[in-house]
């Protein structure tokens, strides 16, 4: 039962096993475990980041949607207003144009009328003179009677 020389042989074997585990077993396994742990940690962090980014994106999307909707509403209102303004303007312009055309037509008509009157007067004067010439059957000195003739013309 007392320990014997097996002790030394066993101690050497034990020491060899420790050295082997220290050199060839522990480092590669621990490196792999640490590497995986790091990978997992990174993956989790990435996922967390992704989630945050997604939430942020959602928020941005909502804000943008709201803004866009508001902008569209505003634009539509503005458009309606502008269209109304344009319609009103067009109406005013059309009225002005119409008035102008009517006025011009009136003026033209007045002028035509005036011209016709003028012509009529001249012709009447010529006719009157010719008539008078025929009635009187004598020559009337146009120069002498110019005064009288122009008086007559003015009366027409």
């Amino acid at each position: 039962m007392m320990p014997n020389a097996t002790l030394f042989a066993m101690a050497v074997w034990f020491a060899l096993l420790i050295a082997f585990a220290y050199k060839f077993i522990w480092p590669p396994l621990m490196t792999a475990i640490d590497a995986r742990n790091k990978k997992i940690a990174e993956g989790l962090a990435e996922a967390e980041k992704g989630k945050a980014a997604l939430a942020e994106g959602q928020k941005q999307k909502d804000a943008m949607m709201k803004e866009a909707r508001q902008a569209a509403t505003e634009m539509k209102a503005l458009n309606d207003k502008q269209a109304q303004v344009q319609i009103d303007e067009a109406k005013v312009q059309a009225k002005v144009e119409a008035d102008r055309i009517i006025a011009a037509a009136h003026a033209q008509i007045e002028m035509e009328k005036q011209k016709a009157k003028e012509q009529l007067r001249d012709q009447v004067a010529v006719l009157a003179i010719a008539g008078a010439e025929k009635i009187l059957k004598r020559e009337v000195d146009a120069k002498v009677h110019a005064d009288m003739l122009s008086q007559l013309r003015a009366q027409l």
Binding site: A5, T6, L7, F8, A9, M10, A11, F14
Partner: peptide
């Protein structure tokens, strides 16, 4: 006992 002592004395 030799084996266990070998380990414990290491």
């Amino acid at each position: 006992l030799s084996v266990t002592f070998a380990m414990s004395f290491t």
